[in-house]
Amino acid sequence: MGRPGLLGTWILSALLLAFVQVEAAPEVTGVSRLGLVLLPWMASGLFPRADGAVPFPSFLALSLPLLAIAAALDLRGGRTLGETIQLIGPAGLAWMLWAKARSVGGQQVGYKVCWGLLVPGSAALLLALGWAGAGAPTHAVPQALGWLARLNPLVWTWAATRSQGLVEAGLDPLPVLAAAAVLVVCAWEHRARSEVDP
């Protein structure tokens, strides 16, 4: 992602923050600002790497002021430090792991396939299952498809953004982190193999 994409992400996350500030509806007041601001950064940070992309540290640097404002607003708005850490801890770690996998093998086909399947693919499947009324599927196929969404860091972060969202969705951070860690290992191995056997 180049500078225009970076600027777009910044504007999007600032708009989300502004929306929650202005909109005082009860369903919005329980939402974590930190989670909302993090979502656009996460989504664009996972995107398969293209030539001329901004290095991840610079990408992270631009997100930090808005994330800090959102976290401080959460704390001022009643969220405890523990709740904030419960959100940013797993979400931030998953983001870093994905970013590492992306920097190591972001241009590899494997990364692009994993990204397509686990990020937009699984989110779309989850949405489709919800629309089809399979919120608690009993059949093996929708269950397996639904399980794929449990590996998606964006789905986890979105659920953690809403109060009680993780409990309602029955989500755990471990599958998300495990999937991201596996992705990093695979990207390293693939690169090592291609360096040995060009």
């Binding site: 930090l64 002021p65 808005l66 994330l67 800090a68 404002i69 401080a72 704390l75 001022r76």
Partner: peptide, 10 residues
Amino acid sequence: AGLGCGLLVL
């Protein structure tokens, strides 16, 4: 900047 922003809000 992040530290500054956070402290300013808090």
